[in-house]
């Protein structure tokens, strides 16, 4: 059932609210004051280099790890003392699962779905219909195969199906499309869009595929050195890095490249000056990958700078 998107300034209460989250193991600081929120139905991508603290953040939100300090609320509850009713509203897809190898796909989904039946509500019937779910993730023809006999991509789709069988309000996806071929990846993106748009599921995903983050996420968080160094849409991120857009053109058989802060203005001036002499014009906006590399490098070259988030830009 679609959840009405409340656009009033106060908005609906956030699904995830993290404020000044800190985590350290002995002297080793993993999270150093992480703050962000997720609104209902929002798709958030958490990016960052390995070891930046992505997994730790997600595990704290999932209630699997106790934080050192800071305030965390997930679905209105502190995960550290949440109960099974709260647990029933979460869906979790971990990086790699090899469990239940002897179970057949349909049998496993039916069994695991049954745990959610006591938590069904009129507006969110739980669990999902298993046949529909199999069709959604494209496993219908593998329904009677053993989980252990599935290919890597099929297994991953089964993990996603298990993650959503309880019709979660909030879904965590940890590198969900690793090992997917392009078609499977596109199908998966459709599933994510459908969950967010039709079911109102809030989704927090981690990925190393920036293209995927740009396609799926309403908002991107970049975690580096235990802090959120950027928080905004892909477009906002490229603006944040004082984006210089690459402009290429040719004039009198010579080729030119220029990194322009304001590409539109630069091109206008270019034509004013040279008119018809300009050919082969190419304006290449910064990709999310460019922004990402700049942001992470900026942080790594000088970690002491106060992390600038994009709250101001919005």
């Amino acid at each position: 059932m679609p959840v009405p998107h409340d656009s009033s300034p106060s908005g609906p209460s956030p699904v995830i609210a993290v404020n000044d989250l800190r985590m350290s193991y002995g002297d080793h600081v993993v999270l150093d004051g992480v703050s962000f929120t997720a609104r209902p139905g929002e798709v958030l991508a958490l990016l960052g280099p390995n070891g930046a603290g992505k997994s730790t953040t997600i595990e704290i939100l999932e209630g699997f790890r106790h934080r050192s300090d800071g305030d965390v609320t997930v679905l209105g509850v502190d995960p550290a003392d949440a109960d099974e009713t709260w647990r029933a509203r979460l869906g979790i897809v971990q990086q790699s699962w090899r469990d239940h190898g002897r179970w057949r796909v349909r049998q496993l989904l039916t069994h695991l779905g049954a745990y959610y039946a006591p938590f069904s509500t009129p507006s969110r019937p739980r669990p999902m219909d298993v046949d529909e779910l199999l069709a959604t993730v494209g496993l219908t023809e593998h329904a009677d195969q053993k989980a252990g006999a599935l290919s890597g991509g099929q297994r991953r789709r089964l993990d996603v199906a298990i993650g959503i069988v309880g019709r979660p309000d909030l879904l965590f996806l940890d590198e969900p499309t690793t090992g997917f071929d392009p078609q499977a990846r596109r199908d998966f993106h459709d599933v994510v869009h459908r969950l967010a748009d039709l079911e109102g599921t809030t989704i927090l995903l981690t990925t190393h595929d920036l293209d995927e983050a740009e396609k799926l996420a309403d908002r991107i968080l970049i975690l580096a050195g235990g802090r959120i160094v950027a928080d905004g849409s892909a477009a906002e991120l490229s603006r944040e890095v004082e984006g210089r857009t690459e402009v290429r053109w040719s004039r009198d058989g010579e080729y030119y490249v220029h990194a322009a802060a304001d590409a539109t203005r630069f091109v206008r001036e270019l034509f004013e000056q040279h008119g018809d002499a300009i050919g082969d014009l190419e304006v290449r906006r910064r990709t999310l990958e460019d922004s990402y590399m700049t942001l992470v490098q900026r942080f790594e070259s000088d970690p002491s700078t106060e992390a600038r988030t994009l709250e101001a830009v919005r």
Binding site: F64, E84, T85, W97, H100, F119, I162, G166
Partner: peptide, 10 residues
Amino acid sequence: GTLLRAKSTP
């Protein structure tokens, strides 16, 4: 990971 799966389920 069977145990983690159990832990993720209500």
